[in-house]
Amino acid sequence: MIKFTNVFKAFPKGGLALKDVSFHIAKGEFVFLTGHSGAGKSTVLKLIYAEEPVTSGEVRVSGFNAAELRPRDVPMLRRRLGIVFQDFRLLEDRTADENVAFALEVTGARRSSIPARVMRVLTQVGLAAKAQAYPRELSGGEQQRVAIARALVNEPTVLLADEPTGNLDERATRGVFQLLRDINASGTAVVMATHDLDLVRQAPYRVIELQEGALVYDSAVDEPREAASP
C-alpha cells in the first residue's frame, strides 16, 4: 500500500536526505521509523503525503504514483491519509470538536453528517467530555488526542505520525501510544517516526531504521536483532 523503490531525495540546499531507500508497507501494518536526528524520518513521511517531490525512484501510496501526481491530486491523496505531528498543529481559536469538524468541512463532507462523526472519533480517543475545550485548555496529551481524532475522522487507511509523543511526558506518551495501537488493531495502518527506543522495544512491531538517509535495518527483511542502536 506504501511502496518505496530505490528512492533518492535531495533538497535544493543541502545534500541527499534519502539514499536508495526501498520498503513496502502492507495494509493494516504498524511500522516504527527510527534513526538519529537528521536521519531522514520526516523526509520519508513528507514523500508519503506529497509535501515534497521525489528526486528519483518510485513512491506509490494507496494507488497514487508520486511522480505522476498533479497538484490537484494531492488533496485527494491526503484525504486517504491521517497525519499527526509532534506539535499537534491545532487551530488555537477553535474548540476540540471544531478542530476535528474542520477536517470534514474542508473536504466537503455532508453538513448533517459532521457532528455525529466528530463525536464518534472524539469518543474513540477518549476526549468526548472535552469536546468544547480550546487547545489552550487542554494538556499536551489531550491536544495530541484531538489531533489524532482529526486525522481519523476522514477514515484514512494509513495514519502517519511524526514523533507524536515527542512533546509528551511518560504517562501521556504511554496513553497516546496505546491509542495508536488500538487504532491499528481496528485495521488502520500506522507509520510512526520516533526516537523513543523504549516504545519501540515495548511492542512487537516492524522497525525500519534510517542512518544518514540510508535504510540500514528493516525487521521485516533483515535478521532479528536487539532494537536499534541508541
Binding site: 497538484p71 484525504r79 498543529r89 487551530l91 477536517a103 474542508v106 473536504t107 466537503g108 476522514n154
Partner: peptide
C-alpha cells in the same frame, strides 16, 4: 498561513 497549512494537510483543495 498556519491555518492554510493545516487545511492543505487535511486535504483541502486550493480552490476551497
Amino acid at each position: 498561513s498556519r491555518e492554510i497549512a493545516i487545511m492543505r494537510l487535511v486535504g483541502a483543495t486550493n480552490g476551497f
